[in-house]
Design a protein around this nucleic acid. Structure first.
Lengths: 209, 209
DNA sequence: AGTCCTGGATAGTGTTGGTATCCAGCCAAG
DNA sequence: CTTGGCTGGATACCAACACTATCCAGGACT
C-alpha cells in the first residue's frame, strides 16, 4: 500500500501522515526504493488509533507518542500501560506551593486511603481532583464527602465494567487497544452522557413547555 | 480596590486582568480618574469564576465570554444558561458529511428518544457521543446498548444529584454560579474519580504486589 | 519633587498541530 | 524511452490561542 492509499483509507492527508511519522507516532513504511515505501494494515490501524486519541480524546501529539511507545514495547504490562496513559493524559499542572492547594491535595489523598483504592501516589488524577477542590472552595462551594458519594459510586461501577471488558485472552495488541479505548474513549462517553443527563434534568426542573 | 490589589487577591497578573477586560470577560472598574479605576468584590468574584472555568474547566476565553454574557443578562433563565454553557463547552466539531457519522448520530438520537430525555436537538454533546461511536466502530469496538447501560445509569444518578444541588431560593447570581460549578467543575470531579477508580480496578486485576 | 501606580494601546512571544513547497528520484503507461 | 504523477525527505510557513512585555502620559501618595 502506498502512502496515498493510506491517506484515503485513514481520512488523513498525506502531509499529516508524514508529520506523524516525523513525530514518531507512526513507524515509517518498509522502504521499497529510495522514493517509495510500503505500508500495511498495521499502519492503518495505528492511524485509526492516533486519530481516535487526537480527535475524540483530544490528546496532544506528545502524549500519543508516549502512549504508542508503550504500546509497542512488549515488556510493558497492562497495568503499566495504564499508568503511562494516565500520565500522558494529564493534567500537567505543577501544583503551586500554596497552603490551600496542599490542604486540598491532602483531602484527596485521605479520600483515596479511606476508599482503600490502590492508586499511584503521583497519579495526575489526584492533582486534577485537588485542583477542582481548590477552585470549588474559592468560589464558596466547598465540597463535602456527602457530595462526593454519588460520584464515587458512579465511578466505581463504570470502572469495574470497563476493566471487565478489557479482560480476555485476546492477543496483546487487541487487549492494549481495548484498554486505551476504555480509558480514553469511554471517558468521553461518560462525559457526553453526563452532559445529556444534566440537560434532561435541567429541562425537567426548569423547562416549562 | 486598585487593580494591583485585585491582582494579589485573585492570583492573576495585572496584565492578565487587563487582557480579560479587553476581551470582555470582566467589566471595567468604575473610573475614579483618567488613570485610576475602582474595583469591588464583584470583580474579584468574577475573576475567581473565570479562573475556575479556564484552569479547571479548560474552557477557551471565547467560551467564557459567552458564558459570562449570559450570566450578566438577567433575562436569561436557568435552563437557557444551561444551553449556553453546553454550547460554549463544545465540542465544536462540524460533523463531516459521512455516512458512518450520520448513522452514529442517528443512533445517538434514537438512544435519547428511547430514554425519553428532553435534550435540545442541536446539543453539542450529541455530536460528542456520535463522534465517539464512530471512532469506536472504526477501531473494531462497536458499542452496544448493553455496554451503555451502566454509563446511562451513572450519568442519570449524578446529574439528578447536581440539579438538586442547584435548586434553592438563593439570589440569582448564587444560583447561576452554582449551575456553572455543577456543570463545569463537577464534570472534572467525575472525570478524576473515574480515572482513579479505573486505576484501582486495574491494580486489582493486574497488580501483583 | 520625586517615585510609583494606572489605563490604554500596541506589539511580541511560545506552543501546538498541522500545511505548503520544493526537490530529486523513481515507476508505470503510452 | 519519455512523460506525468507519485514519492521520501527537508524546510519553511501558518493560524489560533492565551497571554506577556513595553510604552506612554497622567495622576496620586509621600
Amino acid at each position: 500500500m502506498q502512502i496515498s492509499e493510506l491517506s484515503d483509507r485513514s481520512g488523513l492527508t498525506v502531509q499529516t501522515i508524514k508529520f506523524y511519522i516525523r513525530e514518531e507516532l507512526l513507524p515509517k513504511g518498509a522502504a521499497a526504493s529510495s522514493t517509495r515505501s510500503e505500508y500495511d494494515e498495521r499502519h492503518l490501524e495505528r492511524l485509526r488509533l492516533i486519530r481516535a486519541l487526537r480527535e475524540v480524546g483530544d490528546l496532544p501529539v506528545a502524549a500519543i507518542k508516549r502512549i504508542v511507545a508503550a504500546v509497542d514495547d512488549d515488556t510493558v504490562g497492562m497495568h503499566e500501560l495504564f499508568g503511562t496513559t494516565q500520565h500522558a493524559i494529564g493534567p500537567h499542572v505543577l501544583p503551586p506551593d500554596d497552603p490551600h492547594w496542599r490542604a486540598a491535595r491532602e483531602d484527596v489523598d485521605a479520600l483515596i486511603r479511606e476508599l482503600g483504592w490502590r492508586v499511584a501516589g503521583e497519579a495526575p488524577a489526584r492533582d486534577l481532583l485537588a485542583q477542582t477542590f481548590v477552585a470549588l472552595r474559592r468560589l464558596g462551594f466547598p465540597i463535602t464527602l456527602t457530595d462526593l458519594r454519588p460520584y464515587v459510586r458512579a465511578a466505581v461501577t463504570v470502572a469495574e465494567h470497563e476493566i471487565g471488558r478489557v479482560t480476555g485472552d485476546a492477543p496483546r495488541s487487541r487487549t492494549v487497544h481495548s484498554m486505551l479505548v476504555s480509558t480514553v474513549l469511554y471517558e468521553q462517553v461518560l462525559t457526553a452522557l453526563h452532559r445529556l443527563a444534566q440537560e434532561d434534568a435541567s429541562a425537567r426542573r426548569y423547562g416549562s413547555e
